Amino acid sequence: MSTQNPGLAAAFSLLAVACLTIMVGCVVVPGLPSIAQNLGVASAASWLVTLPALGVVLFGPVAGHLIDRLGAYRMLCAGLFAYGLLGVAAVALHGMWLVFANRLLLGAATAVVMTSGTALISAFYSGQDRLTMIARQGMTIELGGVIFIALGGQLASLGWRWPFVLYLFAWLMLGMVLCCVPRPPATRENPQPTAQARRLSATLKTVYVLALAAMTIFFFAVVKLPIHLHALGYSEPQTGYFLSFISLVAVGAAFVMPRVVSRLGNFSTLAVAFLFFAVAHGLFAWVGSTAWLLLCCIAMGTGFGLSVPLVNHMTVENSAAEVRGRNLSYLSVAIFMGQFLASFSDFLPGPPTLALCIAGAASVVVAGSIGVARGLFAPGATR
């Protein structure tokens, strides 16, 4: 049941805001070589994609503190304005120091948007309705990746500056929030935290570790798969189709995630997600035919759709209202830290298949650890 039903327009606006979290890096991906050259960072082009993630890691806790102090609604509006301004401002900059500082600050704005958006969902919804909304949020994030990568590619064909126009979608969403999303009651949005509420529970710490593991393992494939597929003879457009298919599968998995959780429980569902990751990475490393690779994509997308929206819900579920912004910001740090750590897979020796095998083995270890810790393999255990 909802704690204060904000209406369909408000729900749509809050879900639309979620697109910006994945859009922050993927907008520049299709035209990355040309964009990096014109910004004067050709020797470190990949950092244009990964630095916003580092910005979330560095500024996430500050964002969470401000959300708990000033309110999620106010901070979401400020974050959306800053996101659009910082995103489009990069076209006027040149050189590593200015461009990279801009990308880090864009990551800070992303942390505010991501955390405050989820905090508002948690303020308006509770119970099964909240889980459903957070599942839809995960679906929206993945759909946003598909849509904005496609739009970024089309705009990049017009000129290197054009993809940055997409960041101004944040201002459109700011207007939607101001027009359609009501303010939560002040007593619900910004109460004073108690000493017990400030303390992170063992469950929350476990959720953060699992979120970090899920994103690191998932992005191992994102980083290594293009190289591996190129070695197998697949073209860049075909590689893009595979990655987009993973996102589409993740949308479907996020849609059914609430029903899976109702049958298996939170931690059992996470264990299943890591088993899907294990299957995907293992097969990616050993198969080469299109049919088998599509099966790998299904397993990878299922693992993502069952895990990332769920850790969002579990964080909200295990957080007192007065520290929800802070706890969600810690989750954002864990998620984007995983994305950032995956970029260091480039330093692993050997072919890309070795990194994929390592990620697959790690997935099995994590799934087994969840099972042992939670008694999932005991008769009748479901949680």
Rank of each mutant, 00 (worst) to 15 (best):
230 H>K: 15
383 R>E: 15
194 T>A: 10
277 F>K: 06
62 V>F: 13
34 S>C: 03
74 R>H: 14
13 S>P: 10
379 P>K: 11
25 G>D: 09
291 A>T: 13
293 L>Y: 07
65 H>P: 03
60 G>L: 05
84 G>T: 08
353 T>R: 11
163 P>F: 00
172 L>I: 13
90 A>M: 04
314 M>L: 11
303 G>T: 04
49 V>N: 04
329 S>V: 03
124 F>G: 06
226 P>T: 07
378 A>S: 13
349 P>W: 07
30 P>R: 02
226 P>A: 07
102 N>Q: 12
110 T>V: 13
381 A>G: 01
135 A>V: 10
352 P>R: 05
276 F>T: 07
14 L>C: 06
141 I>G: 09
51 L>D: 08
255 F>L: 15
268 S>L: 11
134 I>N: 01
136 R>M: 14
307 S>R: 03
3 T>N: 13
152 G>T: 01
162 W>Y: 13
205 K>R: 15
201 S>D: 07
55 G>P: 08
286 W>L: 14
60 G>N: 02
259 R>C: 11
336 F>K: 00
205 K>N: 14
27 V>D: 00
97 W>A: 15
151 L>H: 07
63 A>P: 04
61 P>K: 01
140 T>P: 07
63 A>L: 03
200 L>K: 03
156 A>V: 07
47 W>V: 04
359 A>T: 03
120 L>G: 01
219 F>C: 08
137 Q>I: 11
132 T>N: 14
351 P>K: 03
164 F>T: 00
257 M>C: 12
343 S>P: 03
52 P>E: 08
242 F>P: 01
266 N>D: 15
382 T>V: 14
45 A>P: 06
299 A>V: 03
92 A>C: 12
301 G>P: 02
123 A>C: 12
196 Q>G: 12
243 L>V: 07
234 Y>M: 09
218 F>R: 02
84 G>P: 05
46 S>A: 13
46 S>C: 08
57 V>Y: 05
362 A>C: 12
334 A>K: 01
350 G>N: 06
94 H>L: 06
198 R>T: 11
291 A>H: 08
75 M>G: 08
267 F>M: 14
338 G>I: 02
207 V>W: 01
364 V>S: 10
381 A>V: 01
212 L>K: 00
133 M>P: 07
108 A>S: 13
134 I>F: 04
365 V>G: 11
135 A>H: 06
138 G>M: 10
30 P>E: 08
311 V>K: 01
106 L>C: 05
221 A>C: 11
28 V>E: 07
158 L>F: 14
106 L>W: 02
321 A>V: 03
66 L>F: 02
267 F>Y: 14
373 A>K: 15
62 V>C: 10
377 F>K: 10
54 L>D: 02
301 G>Q: 00
356 L>H: 02
18 A>K: 02
139 M>W: 05
280 A>C: 10
365 V>H: 09
101 A>I: 12
215 M>Q: 05
143 L>I: 14
373 A>W: 12
65 H>N: 09
235 S>T: 14
221 A>E: 04
303 G>A: 08
300 M>I: 05
371 G>V: 07
361 A>M: 12
225 L>E: 08
294 L>G: 00
202 A>N: 13
108 A>R: 02
13 S>N: 09
